[in-house]
């Protein structure tokens, strides 16, 4: 066990850095650039039961310190992912991977998870109940504790693999949703998904995105994500994967101090394709600067100081 290693639901990661779903495809584009086996693991593109072409263009807009996307879960469907994408991924990535799953009904979530449960390459199932860019699915399950618990329980019944539930920040009380997922059998939660946002084109006086709204990610959302990781850490005992605007080794450490066991990196991959590799390389020196000997020991380290 190295200084950087962490344990995520019983599976050892060499380091806590995980590219977030939807920013890393199925890994090949990045495998052309660097050996992606340096990653803790990664979460592949959100997968649904049927193939999805995604939303109309434009799907991308920009903010002052981040980006908006409304891709709309474009993916080839779970069977094509298992048949075509995962064997290709196996050639360039030799660690268990996180399968990110979306759906439009409780039974669809469960069916996609059931099919992925039989794939040895998949280490964890990350159940996305927080996509803001599709109607009638995704986020509608993540904004109500009862619906979140229902999806969690349904997935729990069909798989022996660890279940991570990916939470939406577009709620009043994220801790209550996290607690509902924990009570329904989730092994971990990941947060935050993107923050619902929009831009308007001054010339056309219309929304920039064809979907009108999209999900904001990038450094703009980091403090918001950190606050939510903090709140969820106070409410649950299961591990938390922190994400939202992480772009440096310092951000990773800050997320872990707030309560994260592992950390996902999203938008940074899209503007700095070497972001994850660079963060991992910078971690040992950054840990030394802040007197951290073993990374796994700092999770939640910023809590409880009032009592000292």
């Amino acid at each position: 066990m190295g200084k950087l290693s962490v344990s995520l639901c019983g599976i050892e990661l060499d380091n806590p850095v995980i590219p977030a779903s939807g920013t890393f495809g199925y890994g090949y584009e990045f495998a052309e650039l660097y050996d992606i086996n340096c990653l803790g693991t990664f979460s592949f593109k959100g997968t649904t039961l049927q193939p999805r072409a995604g939303n109309r263009l434009p799907r991308i807009a920009e903010g002052n310190a981040g980006m908006l996307n409304a891709v709309g879960l474009q993916n080839p469907g779970v069977d094509a992912v298992i048949r075509e994408e995962l064997p290709k991924l196996a050639r360039v990535f030799h660690k268990p991977v996180i399968a990110n799953v979306s759906g439009f009904s409780v039974s669809e979530y469960a069916e996609v998870c059931r099919r992925l449960d039989g794939v040895p390459q998949v280490g964890w199932l990350e159940v996305n109940i927080s996509c803001p860019n599709v109607h009638g699915g995704g986020m509608s399950f993540g904004t109500d504790p009862g619906a979140a618990a229902e999806v969690t329980a349904a997935v729990r019944r069909v798989t022996a693999k660890p279940v991570i539930v990916k939470l939406s920040p577009n709620v009043t009380d994220i801790a209550a949703i996290a607690k509902a997922c924990e009570d329904a059998g989730a092994d971990a939660v990941s947060l935050i998904n993107t923050v619902m946002a929009m831009r308007i084109d001054l010339k056309t006086r219309r929304p920039v995105l064809a979907n009108r709204t999209g999900g904001l990610s990038g450094p703009a959302v980091f403090p918001l994500a950190l606050r939510m990781v903090w709140q969820v850490h106070e409410a649950v005992r299961i591990p938390i994967i922190g994400l939202g605007g992480v772009q440096s080794a310092e951000d990773v450490i800050e997320m872990m101090l707030a309560g994260a066991t592992a950390v996902q990196v999203g938008a940074a991959n899209l503007v700095k394709p070497f972001a994850c590799r660079d963060i991992i390389q910078a971690l040992p020196e950054t840990m030394e600067r802040y007197g951290i000997e073993k990374l796994s020991e700092i999770t939640g380290g910023a809590h409880g100081w009032e009592k000292m």
Partner: peptide, 10 residues
């Protein structure tokens, strides 16, 4: 991204 990762321009 410009290199195929984000599916923003499909």
């Amino acid at each position: 991204c410009g290199f195929g990762a984000c599916m923003g321009c499909t």
